[in-house]
Amino acid sequence: MSRSLKSTLLAAALSVASFNLMVIEPAQAHCQIPCGIYDDHARVQSMLEDAATVEKSVTLITELAGKTDVQSQNQLVRWVMNKETHAQKIIATISDYFLTQRVKADMDDYGERLAKHHAVIVAAMKAKQNADDASVKALKDAIEALAPYYPEHKH
């Protein structure tokens, strides 16, 4: 990797880190009171959309990585931030919604469910740390492994 590319990526990472420290978002978890309105399948689909966004971000980060013009650098930073945001949304959905409300210690398959939900968090963390296809695939696979627990309900 060239010195200028390393400097560019470091600058992008520092920009993202600085931005993430300045932006404090409240958790958007539904529903920590027993309202009874749940659509677990929709949440899984939403996480898959977030993973697709992470994938597109990685593709565009890769395309922009060697470019040194200002516009490309601007777009590179924006795609890195986008990747971070969508990976974090997945982590929040798992931790703030599924692990707090849908995975219960008294379930017969509690250990298996806990491990699969944890795998999504770890995969999302790795997708934040890396910009490669393997990390994206691991994230999508981990989310898809949850789908059988949360089938679509026909009303």
Rank of each mutant, 00 (worst) to 15 (best):
A12L: 01
V16G: 07
S18V: 02
F19L: 14
P26K: 14
Q32H: 15
P34C: 07
G36S: 11
H41Y: 14
Q45C: 05
S46V: 01
S46H: 04
L48D: 05
E49I: 09
A51K: 02
A52V: 01
V54P: 04
E55H: 13
K56C: 04
S57Q: 06
V58T: 10
I61E: 14
I61P: 04
T62D: 13
T62H: 13
L64H: 02
G66Q: 06
K67N: 12
T68R: 10
T68I: 08
S72P: 02
S72L: 00
N74T: 15
Q75K: 11
W79Q: 14
V80A: 07
M81T: 07
K83W: 00
H86Y: 15
K89Y: 12
K89C: 08
I91T: 11
D96Q: 15
F98S: 04
T100L: 12
T100K: 13
Q101R: 12
D108W: 00
G111P: 00
A115N: 05
A115K: 11
A115G: 02
H118T: 11
H118N: 08
A119C: 01
A123N: 00
A124W: 10
K126F: 03
Q129D: 12
Q129A: 14
A131D: 04
D133L: 07
A134D: 10
S135H: 02
S135Q: 00
